[in-house]
């Protein structure tokens, strides 16, 4: 969701209210709730929306439904994985910075342990084996997945006209300069962010400046 969409003023007020716990939440309870969330939710933050609402809003009353939505929108706007950022924001609101770290760690632990177990079980298959063939095929599938996700990400910017053109130029220059001319990806990404922030302004502001 774009930050320029209606309703963001209320989002600002709700999110900016800082660590104001309605009732003091014990760190252990916070940890257990986020451990459970990390172990039982699949498909990312938006997919887990209903489960999160049922637990944090209706069952425990730790945050309001409006606050949950506002935090989810904000989590998608800050430079961090959004599900974790949401967990960190809830933790911060309930127990300050310590709460933020506790909720983040607990949200991440179940998945990370399973991923680690998977990584330890399966290493690279020897050439010509079934495992190597499956890994090769999965890698190709992920290449397609990344390209599709890149296209979806570009679409989600909702840019139009010359702003879209400028965005496409930025998006194309990154692989071009990185893969053909060896410019470090980080340098290109930072250049893209800076040039994008200068050239592609929010629509209202852009209109104001003619």
């Amino acid at each position: 969701m774009s930050s320029t969409e209606p309703g963001n003023n209320s989002v600002n007020k709700i999110v900016a209210s800082g660590p104001v716990p309605v009732t003091p939440v014990p760190l252990l309870s916070l940890a257990l709730v986020f451990l459970k969330m990390g172990a039982l939710t699949f498909g990312g933050m938006w997919a887990a929306f209903s489960r999160i609402e049922a637990d944090l809003v209706h069952r425990r009353g730790w945050i309001s439904a409006d606050t949950q939505r506002a935090m989810m929108i904000t989590a998608a706007l800050i430079p961090a994985p959004k599900f974790l950022a949401f967990g960190g924001m809830v933790g911060y609101r309930l127990r300050g910075f310590t709460g933020s770290v506790v909720s983040l760690v607990c949200l991440m632990i179940p998945g990370s342990l399973l991923v680690l177990a998977g990584a330890m079980l399966l290493r690279q298959g020897a050439e010509g084996t079934l495992l190597a063939a499956v890994q090769h095929s999965i890698t190709l599938g992920i290449v397609g997945l990344l390209l599709g996700n890149a296209a979806n990400m570009a679409q989600s910017s909702r840019l139009t006209g010359w702003r879209l053109f400028a965005g496409i130029v930025i998006a194309v220059m990154i692989p071009l300069m990185t893969l053909l001319f060896g410019v470090p990806l980080l340098v290109m990404a930072l250049l893209g962010l800076v040039s994008g922030a200068i050239v592609i302004r929010p629509e209202q502001e852009s209109d104001e400046h003619g």
Binding site: S2, S3, T4, L77, I78, P79, T139, I142, V143, G144, L146, L147, N149, A150, A151, M153, A154, S156, S157, L159, G167, I168, I170, A171, V172, M173, I174, P175, T178, L179, L185, M188, A189, G192, L193, S195, G196, A197, V199, I200, R201, P202
Partner: peptide, 23 residues
Amino acid sequence: INHVSISASMVIAGMMSTAAIGL
């Protein structure tokens, strides 16, 4: 955040394409 997030989608799209081609 508003400024950066608008261009960030395109920058990340470019980064993901780079990752895909590089992979």
